[in-house]
Design a protein around this nucleic acid. Structure first.
Length: 265
DNA sequence: AATATTGTTCAGCA
DNA sequence: GTGCTGAACAATAT
């Protein structure tokens, strides 16, 4: 489920646990998740180094080493991090283990192996190669930029929000959440939305991100007025009298409330 | 036993 | 080129 807010939580987690300590040992347990580099090479290049800072773009987490290289982590659908004492029993699906010289380690788990572990020289080049669009949770992102992009897109608003080459970071869960609060149905046409509708989406996008991040991106900690814990067909809408509906949009199961979310075509 | 999850990438079609 | 669908990738739950 790791989308923008989840990865932002991971980023802060690394910041508060794993920076400025020497890497004593590093192991990779699955070569199928590597980018254009061998596990051995990552190990050799990171041993004895320190992690210095972090950066997030969309659903990607970049961790800079004191050599200037960046460790890249993508979490696919099931990836997560855990910082713990060495020797503590590792869970299943351990893919990467970074042991520090203070007796603790940072572990990366990924059950369904759809993530990525990589080591790169330049985050800018990486973002270009992956054709990632602008990160919607950044200073540079303003309403005018958003409005222009939405107006130029001919597909559904759901497709637009989830297209990583337009904006990077929004997935199935949070696109539904944003549209739920904006009161617009997922199948609405992106370029048919007027300024008011676009403003609603833009505002709620920020609201949803900051709320999710504030609550550590844990579904159970989110306000009850959020869709995230009510993603069941037929369940009562948490903000009106409607009933939650499920519909395939852009290849994904999309949940919305037909009562308070308007279809704009 | 089939289906549904979750995200990315790619093939194929209009 | 754009929009969109469906498949593949993996592993698990219902």
């Amino acid at each position: 489920m790791p989308e923008l807010p989840d990865v932002e939580i991971f980023r802060r987690y690394v910041d508060s646990t794993s920076l400025h300590r020497e890497i004593q040992n590093l192991n990779i347990y699955d070569n199928s998740m590597l980018g254009d580099i061998s596990g051995r090479s990552i190990q050799m290049r990171l041993k004895g180094r320190k992690l210095e800072s972090t950066l997030r773009h969309g659903k990607y987490l970049f961790i800079k080493t004191n050599k200037g290289e960046w460790l890249v982590l993508h979490f696919g659908m099931t990836g997560y991090l855990n910082y713990a004492k060495n020797g503590s029993k590792p869970s299943d699906h351990l893919k990467l283990l970074i042991e520090f010289n203070n007796g603790y380690h940072l572990a990366y788990y990924c059950q369904r192996k759809l993530g990525l572990i990589d080591l790169i020289e330049s985050t800018g080049d990486f973002i270009n190669e992956k054709e990632l669009g602008i990160d919607p949770y950044s200073e540079k992102f303003d309403f005018n930029t958003y409005r222009k992009m939405a107006g130029n897109s001919r597909g559904t608003i759901k497709y637009f929000l989830m297209d990583q080459s337009i904006m990077a970071g929004i997935g199935n869960i949070y696109s539904d959440e944003i549209l739920f609060h904006a009161g617009i149905r997922p199948k609405s046409k992106s370029n048919k939305l007027d300024d008011h509708a676009n403003e609603l989406i833009f505002e709620n996008m920020n609201e949803v991100f900051s709320t999710a991040i504030k609550n550590k991106a844990k579904p159970d900690s989110m306000p009850d007025s959020y869709l995230i814990t009510h993603r069941n067909p037929g369940e009562k809408c948490p903000v009106c009298d409607g009933k939650i509906k499920k519909e395939k949009v852009s290849g994904r199961s999309s949940y919305y409330c037909p009562q308070h979310q308007k279809l704009i075509i």
